[in-house]
Amino acid sequence: MQIDIKYFGMLAEITGCDSEKVESEIQTVADLQKVLLDKYPDFKNKDFRIAQNQELVALETKLTGQEIAVLPPFAGG
């Protein structure tokens, strides 16, 4: 499955891009987290959450491959 992933804030600084396509046999959010930590070791020291279709999702959630975003801590206001 090809997944289009968006990155924001300090995470985009680490990846060096705002979005990228990842080709992988990823099934769940936990799998995606593992792929990201392998690809970007600096993510290990960061607090991040994953959103699918613009909603934060838990690690056991199945990935559908639609609109995935990796979000650092929120700092609005």
Partner: peptide, 27 residues
């Protein structure tokens, strides 16, 4: 409303210092 915005809105803030260095704000 304000507390909900702080907790739930995916907004990110880069704090820029006088010497042009920066750090990322966390609510």
């Amino acid at each position: 409303v304000v507390e909900a915005i702080k907790a739930d809105a995916p907004v990110f803030g880069k704090e820029i210092f006088e010497d042009a260095s920066h750090q990322w704000k966390v609510n």
